[in-house]
Computed example of a mutant assay.
Amino acid sequence: MNAAAIRLPGGAGSAAMARHFVRTQLSAWALADAGGDALILTSELVGNAVLHGGGAVAIRLVRTDSGIRIEVTDREPRPPVPRPAGVDGGFGLGLVQRLSADWGVVPGRTGKVVWLECALS
């Protein structure tokens, strides 16, 4: 199994750093041309984690038989709640639901992991 991980400090630049990490790793796995949705989904998960999760985040990327699994860990124990899209946001989990093959949340002692699976053709 191929896997890679990175810790990010949180803050405004975290989503861009996360996309760079995913893009670089997909390229290393010879999947660079198939990662468009993975980059969007990474941005959404990391953006939510930074906004609602209280700071630093960790990202783990795993190559699976059908694509990749993206896991984002933050310090907020409450699971994310999808809400209607509107002027003040609410688009993130809707995109995750539409673009990922599956997604979920694993609670932890000091936070949670939000994961998703992205099929690659």
Score class of each variant (00 low, 15 high):
residue 104 G to H: 05
residue 65 D to V: 14
residue 75 R to W: 07
residue 87 V to P: 01
residue 85 A to N: 01
residue 75 R to F: 11
residue 69 R to H: 04
residue 81 V to W: 12
residue 111 G to F: 02
residue 114 V to R: 03
residue 80 P to C: 00
residue 87 V to Q: 08
residue 76 E to S: 10
residue 87 V to W: 07
residue 63 R to F: 01
residue 110 T to C: 05
residue 87 V to T: 08
residue 99 L to K: 02
residue 109 R to S: 12
residue 66 S to P: 01
residue 114 V to P: 03
residue 97 Q to V: 02
residue 62 V to W: 01
residue 100 S to V: 04
residue 71 E to Y: 07
residue 73 T to L: 11
residue 106 V to G: 01
residue 98 R to G: 05
residue 101 A to E: 09
residue 114 V to I: 14
residue 86 G to I: 06
residue 108 G to R: 13
residue 106 V to I: 14
residue 89 G to N: 02
residue 98 R to P: 01
residue 75 R to T: 13
residue 83 R to I: 14
residue 87 V to N: 00
residue 80 P to R: 03
residue 62 V to M: 03
residue 99 L to G: 03
residue 89 G to F: 03
residue 62 V to G: 00
residue 65 D to W: 05
residue 86 G to W: 07
residue 91 F to D: 00
residue 85 A to D: 10
residue 115 W to T: 04
residue 118 C to N: 11
residue 109 R to V: 10
residue 103 W to N: 03
residue 86 G to V: 05
residue 116 L to G: 10
residue 84 P to N: 11
residue 83 R to L: 13
residue 93 L to Q: 08
residue 65 D to T: 13
residue 67 G to Y: 06
residue 98 R to M: 05
residue 97 Q to G: 09
residue 82 P to N: 06
residue 75 R to E: 08
residue 113 V to G: 02
residue 96 V to M: 07
residue 96 V to W: 04
residue 82 P to G: 09
residue 100 S to N: 03
residue 112 K to Q: 13
residue 118 C to F: 02
residue 77 P to R: 15
residue 67 G to S: 10
residue 85 A to H: 01
residue 112 K to S: 08
residue 64 T to D: 05
residue 76 E to R: 14
residue 67 G to L: 07
residue 109 R to I: 07
residue 99 L to E: 02
residue 85 A to K: 04
residue 61 L to I: 06
residue 88 D to K: 13
residue 86 G to C: 03
residue 87 V to L: 12
residue 90 G to N: 10
residue 102 D to Q: 11
residue 74 D to V: 06
residue 106 V to W: 01
residue 89 G to Q: 02
residue 110 T to H: 13
residue 80 P to M: 00
residue 102 D to N: 10
residue 68 I to E: 03
residue 112 K to R: 15
residue 110 T to P: 00
residue 63 R to P: 00
residue 108 G to F: 01
residue 71 E to W: 06
residue 77 P to D: 12
residue 84 P to Y: 09
residue 88 D to E: 14
residue 110 T to W: 07
residue 113 V to D: 09
residue 70 I to V: 15
residue 96 V to Y: 05
residue 85 A to I: 00
residue 111 G to T: 04
residue 67 G to K: 07
residue 75 R to G: 15
residue 106 V to D: 12
residue 73 T to I: 10
residue 95 L to P: 04
residue 87 V to H: 11
residue 116 L to C: 15
residue 98 R to I: 01
residue 61 L to V: 09
residue 100 S to L: 06
residue 70 I to L: 15
residue 71 E to C: 13
residue 91 F to Y: 10
residue 97 Q to C: 04
residue 110 T to A: 15
residue 92 G to H: 08
